[in-house]
């Protein structure tokens, strides 16, 4: 796939249940998705920041893509308020129960449908799927290089070509790697936080919310047929894995020996007495 003549930047974002909000959390800890509050996957905020950074620093056009039920449009509007130029929502009932392989297939179809691109930014992981797999799987399907756990990057431009130089976290430290676009980047949560929406961006979104026709110029809603996706590779049918049994992770507890209300000196003394720390202390 050749890079685009203008710089095309894609960012993949997902709407997830808000796990901190009480609404929609069942007594047994499971989430009732119909009632749960929704939010932009917190990890995708870093991806948005990175995509907008390229646009601001080097120029280009940013398109946010999400796959989800119709309300997922909300996060596309949120992205536009932050400075993203356009949004695409892939929504189709046949996508229900997609695992990572099926999700990566469907999103790849959207990306190919949009045409040439230079960079795709993804979050490190989602808070609900929580696999960190969708990004690298898309890169493999598109046969492009990727970098994961990226916490810093720059573009090196010569007349002949542009290269992405990226810093990637590894267990032993970090590495710098260089890639030729088109490339996919999953952004670590140590990357700078997403900047606030501009007043102009927020106003624009307010206007789009009132004016469906204007909104249609910014946000396209597509289904599997629109992007020529094979339904057999999507949803439950297209997913090689399923969730079998689940168990509640029981709360442990009751066994904590608490020190409370006494003078600090005494509380510390008691804890040191009860906990067997003697041999660990430096002589």
């Amino acid at each position: 796939m050749p890079p685009s003549p203008t710089r095309e930047i894609l960012v993949l974002i997902k709407q997830v249940p808000d796990q901190n909000a009480k609404a929609g959390v069942n007594p047994d800890g499971t989430i009732d998705r119909a009632r749960a509050k929704r939010m932009l996957n917190p990890f995708d905020r870093y991806a948005l920041q990175a995509a907008l950074h390229i646009k601001k620093t080097y120029g280009g056009r940013v398109t946010a893509i999400t796959m989800g039920p119709p309300p997922a449009e909300e996060i596309l509007l949120e992205a536009i308020a932050h400075g993203v130029d356009a949004g695409v929502l892939l929504s189709d009932r046949r996508l229900a129960a997609s695992d990572t392989l099926a999700t990566s297939y469907a999103l790849t179809r959207v990306i190919e449908h949009l045409g040439a691109f230079d960079f795709i930014f993804c979050g490190l992981q989602t808070t609900d799927g929580d696999t960190a797999q969708v990004g690298p799987e898309i890169a493999e399907r598109l046969n492009i290089p990727h970098v994961s756990y990226c916490e810093d990057f720059r573009l090196e431009q010569t007349e002949a070509e542009t290269a992405l130089v990226a810093k990637r976290i590894i267990e032993a430290g970090y590495q710098w790697i260089k890639m030729k676009p088109p490339a996919l980047i999953t952004v670590a949560n140590s990357y700078p936080a997403l900047e606030y929406q501009s007043i102009r961006g927020a106003r624009q979104v307010q206007q789009l919310q009132r004016d469906a026709a204007a909104k249609a110029n910014y946000i396209r809603v597509v289904n599997l047929d629109d992007v020529q996706a094979d339904p057999q590779q999507c949803g439950l049918i297209g997913s090689p894995t399923i969730v079998g049994r689940t168990w509640k992770i029981a709360e442990m507890g009751g066994s904590c020996q608490m020190q409370q209300g006494a003078p600090v000196e005494q509380m510390v003394q008691h804890v040191f007495q009860q906990a067997n720390i003697r041999e660990l202390v430096r002589a």
Partner: peptide, 11 residues
């Protein structure tokens, strides 16, 4: 269209 990577309460 929740993904079933996450066990869902609504079977």
């Amino acid at each position: 269209m929740s993904e079933q990577k996450q066990p869902s309460s609504s079977s």
